[in-house]
């Protein structure tokens, strides 16, 4: 197994763990943590291809990761504000108790 494959496998593993947590835990904050893990898995892919790819030398991969980190930070802030607003209205942070739109 080459180092690039190692990085990609670790990234796939992190993505799967984050996905499983995001869709199967009850608490909304855990879902957010799972989403952050998935975003980090994508960032690891960018860095791995930048490091081991054939056209190394430029800063393209690094720039993509820097911007992705900024967007992820904005997403975390808005998501946590949403969770706090939800808790204030419904007195719960459990996703399966929030079913106002359920048919």
């Amino acid at each position: 197994m080459t180092p690039l494959q190692g990085c990609l496998l670790l990234s796939a593993l992190l993505f799967a763990v984050g996905f499983a947590g995001a869709v199967s835990r009850r608490n909304a904050i855990l879902a957010l943590i799972g989403i952050e893990l998935m975003l980090n898995a994508a960032n690891l892919n960018f860095i791995a291809f930048w490091r081991y790819g054939e056209h190394g030398g430029g800063t393209g991969g690094l720039m993509f990761v820097v911007f992705a980190i900024a967007v992820a930070a904005a997403e975390a802030a808005v998501g946590l504000a949403l969770i706090i607003a939800l808790y204030r209205h419904l007195k719960t942070a459990n996703l399966d108790e929030v079913k106002g739109l359920k048919g």
Partner: peptide
């Protein structure tokens, strides 16, 4: 996928 690791940029 590239088999040999490229030089570290």
């Amino acid at each position: 996928l590239p088999v040999e690791a490229a030089e570290a940029p």
